[in-house]
């Protein structure tokens, strides 16, 4: 008998979280698929090798329609790893498993991905540099990072986990993307995007506002839209409903 469990070491099961792309289909499905094809034609390979979750919450379809949708997506090389928000009766062994407790993350911009792919191609060496990898702090609560050098033009600082504090300036052509607030003890000349994981209470603080673009929770303003009397001043920016507000500090 081979399957007698004499092994004293148990199989290790671990929880792990991954970032997946969530697709939210809309009715009628034919139209939605056409729009998806249009997106895919603009940025070839956008869904290739990316884990995709289908969010069918509130979508009025039956089992055979869902089956058909997953097949249609499969034909387009979009492989569905799980289905979110589906009633138990919709799912079965022939469909991807149900997924729950998804937390929102930053919106994927198809356009940005397209650009990234373009620049990656010939000069992969040059394009793949200088993303400052932010090590999240080991302690729980609200993670944050402190950067003690200026963020230079062409550099991207990503920290979806929480707040970013920069002691130094953010140069023109540099960008800082944070899940929480962004604090800049220096001039902000590049882009600052706070609350990108859906945090509307995030704020941006800087000693000198000369930004090219600011955004909180997806609502953004470019340099031209900003109040000119705030330029060069110490400023904080917050979100009031769907409007970005700014005021001087101190």
């Amino acid at each position: 008998m081979n399957d007698v469990l004499t092994e004293s070491r148990p199989i290790r099961l671990k929880g792990r979280s991954f970032l997946a792309l969530a697709l939210t289909p809309e009715l009628p499905l034919e139209d939605w698929l056409t729009r998806l094809d249009h997106l895919a034609s603009r940025s070839a390979g956008f869904f290739l090798r990316r884990p995709v979750v289908l969010d069918v919450d509130g979508l009025d379809i039956d089992r055979s329609q869902l089956r058909e949708l997953v097949d249609q997506l499969g034909k387009r090389n979009v492989r569905i790893m799980g289905i979110e928000g589906a009633r138990q009766s919709l799912l079965g062994a022939d469909l991807p498993p149900a997924m729950t407790d998804g937390r929102p993350a930053a919106d994927y911009e198809a356009k940005m991905a397209e650009q990234a792919e373009k620049t990656e191609a010939p000069e992969a060496e040059a394009a793949a540099e200088t993303v400052i990898t932010a090590e999240p702090l080991a302690t729980k609560a609200t993670p944050s990072i402190v950067v003690t050098q200026p963020v230079r033009s062409g550099q991207s600082l990503f920290f979806p986990e929480g707040d970013v504090t920069i002691i130094g300036s953010v140069a023109s052509g540099a960008e800082v993307v944070a899940g929480g607030s962004i604090h800049i003890y220096g001039a902000l000349r590049g882009r600052a995007m706070a609350g990108t994981t859906g945090n509307a209470s995030a704020r941006i603080f800087c000693r000198k506002l000369e930004a090219e673009l600011i955004a909180i929770d997806g609502f953004y303003k470019t340099a031209d839209d900003m109040e000119q009397n705030l330029r060069g001043k110490a400023v904080q920016i917050w979100l009031d409903g769907e409007e970005l507000k700014a005021g001087t500090l101190g």
Binding site: E129, T130, Q149, R152, S153, G154, Q155, A171, S172, G173, A174
Partner: peptide
């Protein structure tokens, strides 16, 4: 002048990483 300064800033970033 501004474009030269921005390009230099980019190069400083590369000097500190590549």
């Amino acid at each position: 002048e501004v474009s030269s300064v921005r390009d230099s800033d980019r190069i400083i970033g590369l000097l500190d990483s590549k």
